[in-house]
């Protein structure tokens, strides 16, 4: 048991002293997730709005596919993206393999269904009087979309926070696409996996603490948003 306790003490020391290796992994994780969350929102929110707002033939089937993709295994995404961006793949020339944008691309595929599905649910659960009220007040086209998303803002933010949580804690695709290269593509989760394998618990625990703190922060944010939504 001592080694766990010692590892914990050393972890605090690493974090307090600003250990460059620890913070490199933290910043890489933040960079990757910021990129992936931004691109998933750009794609996911408009698609989610359309799925929730409009009635069209095949809507239920599309919804079923999107909901299935929520359970997409990270290693499957890693495998597919790897196949596409490796030298032999159709997008090999972009040189994305073992880069931060490469990992972000894989995470985007992973979390976009979460953004689409939860945004669609948020829009679907809006009061049916909203649309008529907006038209009665003179809103047209894009103004209706923006106002509807603003009405569903807490629910849409819950979608964003949930997607962010999935991205920051993801390990399979990051490992396969990023290659866990120190100072370059090593993220919090891939570092923990490696350090644990080597028996180096201190760095693993230090990064674990950071990850847990982030998760805690996200959960507090979610709790706050859910309360606002109920209000």
């Amino acid at each position: 048991m001592d080694y766990i306790f010692n590892g914990f003490l050393k972890a605090v020391e690493l974090l307090a002293s600003g250990n460059p290796e620890t913070y490199s992994a933290v910043f890489t994780s933040l960079k990757v997730t910021s990129l992936s969350i931004a691109s998933s929102l750009i794609v996911g929110i408009p698609l989610g709005f359309m799925l929730g707002y409009f009635d069209f033939t095949g809507k239920r089937q599309v919804r079923a596919v999107v909901d299935t993709l929520l359970a997409l295994p990270t290693v499957v995404v890693g495998l597919l993206v790897y196949a596409f961006i490796s030298r032999r793949g159709p997008m090999g020339e972009l040189g994305l393999l073992f880069t931060i944008p490469g990992i972000a691309a894989a995470q985007t595929i992973l979390i976009t269904p979460i953004v689409i599905s939860l945004t669609a649910t948020a829009i679907e659960s809006l009061d049916r009087r909203l649309g008529m009220t907006l038209i009665a007040l003179g809103a047209r086209g894009r103004q209706i979309i923006v106002a509807s998303l603003l009405e569903a803002r807490y629910a849409v933010l819950i979608a964003v926070v949930t997607a962010y949580g999935r991205a920051i804690s993801e390990v399979g695709a990051s490992m396969m696409i990023g290659g866990n290269i120190k100072w370059h593509t090593r993220t919090i989760t891939t570092a923990i996996a490696l350090e644990t394998g080597k028996g180096e618990f201190a760095l693993g625990i230090a990064l674990g603490i950071v990850l847990l703190s982030l998760a805690l922060f996200l959960n507090f944010l979610l709790m706050f948003l859910k309360r606002r939504r109920i209000a």
């Binding site: 009087r129 909203l130 009220t133 009665a136 007040l137 003179g138 106002a147 603003l150």
Partner: peptide, 15 residues
């Protein structure tokens, strides 16, 4: 159409 406005029995206020 913006010259016409309607108020419903059950009002909906924006959040």
């Amino acid at each position: 159409t913006r010259e016409i406005t309607i108020l419903f029995q059950e009002p909906y206020l924006l959040k």
